[in-house]
Design a protein around this nucleic acid. Structure first.
Ligand SMILES: [Zn+2]
Ligand SMILES: [Zn+2]
Ligand SMILES: [Zn+2]
Ligand SMILES: [Zn+2]
Lengths: 163, 163
DNA sequence: TATATAATGTTATAATATAACAATATGTTA
DNA sequence: TAACATATTGTTATATTATAACATTATATA
């Protein structure tokens, strides 16, 4: 598998650009409208690899001259989640960009409690195992959330650079 | 493995009694005090197998003549979680009794969206797989939450008896 | 009993999220 | 284009979940 955590020296501008490009493609395919607010919220969610709270997004938008109320942000987030562009991290009440947009799927994350980074595990093994468990319980599975908290290797090695 | 979902005809009084007994044992071992409020909250969490919200517990306690404020309930829940007697279901902002008290562990649940039942998967395979993923990412794992939503077999078969 | 610690009471408020309805923009059809 | 339907956003208010801060009471220990 590809490693879930990106190198701390990676060019994050590329991450943002890739996310926005993918969003354009996804929305075109699904005839959905990536309006300015939705696009801006996606961009802000991609500020880094740590999940961001809705009210944090709200504050940034206010600072930028938009004057949104909470529903504006929550609607944009709902849209982005529905279209597989963002995941909600329920243990943090926060939102993070999807690492594999365009292919709607459940989120499985390793979350570093030190730098905040939420790395999406793109491997299918975990979901496969849970699928097996569901089967053996005759449980009809809709969606799964896996949130594993700990410390990433960079932070364990004493390197606290925020991503 | 034992099946995660109990038969709908099971004697739930036994579940409650077992939970309270186990709590006594756990608290004695850990020299922790199972005070009346803590005990009552645990009992209420065990009203059924569906997670219960903190304010729902609060309302029940009020109806019973206690007059607790939110911190009372949250403190009791925190205590019960710390001692491995209750799990928090973060996708529901709710709390459910632990099916294997006395052995502090991460919660892995199948949650039926129809009857609300949250069945704890006691099998270690899922956590083992996640542990492997963490290892291969050099991620130092602290705790894991697995919440799988779907429909349980009883509800799928059209039997909507609440548990 | 005196003292320290743990637990609970109490008040206020923070943080997260949604309901309800109005206004505007966009797409579609006549 | 005009008329209409639908989607999106604006706006106000409020619901829901959770915690901070400090006072009081209960319990354990010396
Ligand atoms: Zn990046
Ligand atoms: Zn994803
Ligand atoms: Zn039961
Ligand atoms: Zn458990």
């Amino acid at each position: 598998m590809k490693t879930a955590f990106l190198d701390k020296g990676h060019d994050h501008g590329d991450c943002i650009q890739a996310a926005l490009n993918a969003a354009e493609v996804v929305c075109q395919k699904q005839k959905a409208r990536l309006t300015p607010i939705r696009r801006r919220v996606l961009e802000l969610v991609w500020r880094g690899h740590a999940p961001v709270g809705a009210y944090e997004l709200l504050q940034i938008l206010k600072d930028e001259g938009f004057n949104p109320a909470p529903p504006t942000v929550y609607r944009a987030l709902d849209f982005l989640i529905q279209h597989g562009l963002v995941h909600r991290i329920s243990s943090l009440n926060a939102f993070v960009g999807c690492s594999r947009p365009g292919d709607v799927h459940d989120g499985t994350f390793l979350i570093c409690r030190t730098c905040g980074t939420a790395a999406e595990m793109l491997d299918q093994t975990v979901l496969g195992t849970i699928g097996d468990m569901a089967l053996s319980n005759k449980f009809s599975l809709s969606h799964v959330s896996v949130e594993a908290v700990g410390v990433c290797v960079d932070c364990r090695d004493g390197d606290r650079t925020e991503v």
